[in-house]
Nucleic acid binder design. Structure first.
Length: 255
DNA sequence: ATGACTCCCAGTGGGAGA
C-alpha cells in the first residue's frame, strides 16, 4: 500500500501535473494541500476517470485539502473537531485498515505575528485530537505540509534560518510533541541522501541550487511501523514547467 | 536589498506563501 502527500499550490493550475503523476505513481491514497479552490470547482470527474474518488475540503483563494483514494473511505473528518477554524486545513478518513490524517499546517508567517499565535493554537489542538485518534485507530498515518523543519539537517542553511519561521524552537517542540504521541518520522527510518528537501523557494534558482527545506512529512504510528518499507521524496515533479514549490512524499507499506 | 517567483483576486497593484 502506498500513501502520498503533495502540496500542489493550486489544484486548478496543477491538475494536469497531478494526473500525470498519478498515472506514473498509482498510489492507493494521496492527501493534497493548498487546493485554492472551492468544492464546487473540485475536479471529481477527471480524478474518477483516473480511478480516484475524492473527499475534498476546499476554500476560496487559500488553503483547501483533499483525500484521494482508489477504494471508499470511512469516517471522514474535516478540520480538528472542537477547534473552531475558518481555514480548511485537515481531511481525515479510514482507508482499508489505516487511519489517514492529512494536514496543511499553518505557515505562521513570522514568530512575532498573530499568525504564529494561530499556528501554536492549531498545533496544540491537533496534538490533542491526534492523541485521541491514535487511541481509536492504532494503525494511523499523519502526513502533509507541516510547515516545520524538524531539525537543522532539514534546512539548507541552518545559520540563516535559525529562529526563523519553520525553524523556531516552539515549532520544533510541537513536532516533537507529535512524535511523543507514539509517531515516527517515516523518512528518517531510512538512510536518505544528505540535503533532502521537500520544498524549494520559487525565487533565487533555489531548486537548481538545491536550497530548500524538508517541511512535508509522513508520521506513522507504532502499530504501523513494522510495515513501513520505504519513504521517499519525489523530486521529479519539481522539474516540470510551472511546478508546485513542493515535492510529493510517498510512504510504502508492506501488504 | 524590505529583492528575486507564483498564485489569487483584483483590475494595470497587493497580500500571502515559506
Amino acid at each position: 500500500m502506498k500513501i502520498a502527500t503533495w502540496n500542489v499550490n493550486s489544484l486548478g493550475v496543477r491538475l494536469p501535473q497531478l494526473m500525470d503523476w498519478l498515472a506514473a505513481n498509482p498510489v492507493d491514497a494521496i492527501v493534497l494541500q493548498e487546493l485554492k479552490l472551492t468544492d464546487d470547482k473540485f475536479p471529481h470527474a477527471e480524478l474518477a476517470a483516473a480511478g480516484y474518488q475524492a473527499q475534498c475540503f476546499g476554500q476560496r483563494t487559500y488553503n483547501g485539502v483533499a483525500l484521494l483514494t482508489r477504494t471508499p473511505v470511512a469516517d471522514v473528518v474535516r478540520n480538528i473537531p472542537g477547534f473552531a477554524d475558518e481555514q480548511a486545513r485537515v481531511i481525515a478518513g479510514t482507508v482499508g485498515d489505516v487511519r489517514v490524517i492529512g494536514g496543511y499546517f499553518p505557515n505562521g508567517q513570522a514568530p512575532d505575528s498573530d499568525k504564529f499565535v494561530y499556528k501554536m493554537a492549531w498545533l496544540e489542538a491537533l496534538r490533542a485530537w491526534v492523541g485521541a485518534e491514535l487511541a481509536a485507530h492504532p494503525r494511523l498515518v499523519l502526513l502533509g505540509d507541516f510547515n516545520i523543519a524538524p531539525e537543522d539537517r532539514d534546512v539548507h542553511d541552518p545559520v540563516a534560518w535559525a529562529g526563523q519561521i519553520h525553524c523556531t524552537d516552539e515549532e520544533r517542540a510541537h513536532f516533537r510533541a507529535l512524535l511523543a504521541l507514539g509517531l515516527r518520522d517515516a523518512f528518517r527510518m531510512f538512510e536518505q541522501p544528505p540535503k533532502s528537501w521537500s520544498w524549494w523557494d520559487y525565487r533565487n534558482l533555489a531548486f537548481r541550487k538545491n536550497q530548500g527545506l524538508r517541511i512535508d512529512h509522513v508520521l506513522v504510528s507504532a502499530a504501523l511501523e513494522p510495515a513501513v518499507a520505504a519513504c521517499v521524496i519525489d523530486k521529479a515533479p519539481r522539474r516540470n514547467e510551472r511546478p508546485s514549490d513542493h515535492a510529493p512524499v510517498v510512504l510504502t507499506l508492506e501488504a
